Computed example of a mutant assay.
Amino acid sequence: MENLDTTSLNILTKGEYCKLKKQLDYNNLKLRGYEAHYNHKVGSDKELNFFKKEIEKLNGLNKIILSQMEKIKSDYSTPEMKNKKIRIEKSISAKMLKEKELQESILLSSKITVEILRKTLFKHSSDDFESYISNLKEDSVKIDLKASKLFSIHNYFKEMKYEDIERLALNILSKGRYFKAMKEYGVLDKKRIELQIEKDSYSKLSQKLFNLGTFSKINKDLKNINDSILKLEKEFKEIQTSIGDEKLHEEISRINRLRDTIASKYSKQSNTLKEKSQLNEFFIKETNRLKRELENENISNRFSKTSLKTSYIDLRGKILGNYLVDFEIEKKKRKNIDFEF
């Protein structure tokens, strides 16, 4: 409700206004981070140079975006457009109030349904309850496991260091050759260390003479490995030179934006799983409370065991339906209207 002006402009421009605003907000968020690192000299010389270029680029982009947003406001400030804008804002207000009422009715319906269940169902075998709770707990374990994996992916992208991103950019721009060379370098370097240790073990002259053949072979192998390592180091430099600083900078920027998108995506998915887990906990809690209350009730068996099970399944479906399905349908109905800024 606080963003009616922005929302109405977004509708009138068919989503263009909010697209610009979101880009501006994203740019400002990145700017604050880059400026904090650059001003306090946090990072290597390469990182600081990257931050400086990004700050200049983002400030330039922001000027263009602000100019476009001001033009939109000016275009829709005529009396005719003002009236159209007011009508849209009134429509949005009505829809928002309707959604608020819907959510309140969903919550009330859930509470009433649980209360009816608690007061009307008869005492029966606890096996049904235990089985139901066991299934819910199994679901919770699966949900928690999936959430944990999503959290790990989110953290991996979020905590990537500048050097990791730079290497990834070099690999993408060299079409995979950079990582392949790095792998070869790692194997050779490990072998070089092993041979150097073996060579050092023949430090005494008597040992060298006694193992002259082996010593000579180690020196030959070391020379070959060092030559291969030098070739790879030369290849690393050639890859960076052929790509160029400007192209590398643009690719690092692109990966940074992609990383932010991925981190945001997995964060939202984790929040959804958290909500489902909380809903499961709600059902476990309500089932245990119902079981305790029914054990203390002395109500005649007016219903069959099958009837009880059906009633309970219907209840769960109703609450889940209200909580998840209906609300998702309502959200889809307003899919093209962005209320979050």
Rank of each mutant, 00 (worst) to 15 (best):
L150V: 02
H154Q: 12
A169V: 00
F157W: 11
S152Y: 12
S152A: 15
K161R: 12
S152W: 04
K149E: 14
R177L: 12
M160D: 03
K149F: 08
G176T: 05
R167S: 15
K161N: 11
A147W: 00
K180N: 14
K149D: 13
K146D: 05
A181Q: 12
R167G: 11
M160V: 05
A147Y: 09
A147I: 04
M160F: 07
L150M: 10
Y178M: 06
S148F: 03
F179A: 12
E159C: 07
S174P: 08
I153L: 11
L168Y: 09
N171V: 06
K175M: 11
I153S: 04
Y178D: 08
A181T: 10
F151Q: 11
A181N: 14
I165C: 10
K175T: 08
F151I: 08
E166H: 01
K180F: 10
I153Y: 03
Y178F: 14
I165E: 10
I172V: 14
L150A: 00
L150I: 06
L170E: 04
A181H: 09
R167C: 13
Y156A: 15
L150T: 01
E166S: 09
Y162F: 14
K149H: 13
L170P: 03
L150H: 00
L170R: 02
R177A: 11
L173E: 01
G176I: 01
L173C: 00
K158Y: 09
S152Q: 13
I172L: 11
K161D: 13
Y156F: 15
S148R: 03
K146C: 03
R167D: 15
K161S: 14
K158W: 02
E159H: 07
M160C: 12
G176R: 01
E166M: 09
R167T: 13
H154I: 03
F157M: 03
S152F: 07
Y156C: 11
Y156K: 15
A169F: 01
N171S: 06
S152V: 05
S174E: 06
I153A: 01
K146T: 08
Y178E: 08
R177H: 09
F151Y: 13
I172E: 12
E159P: 00
S174G: 07
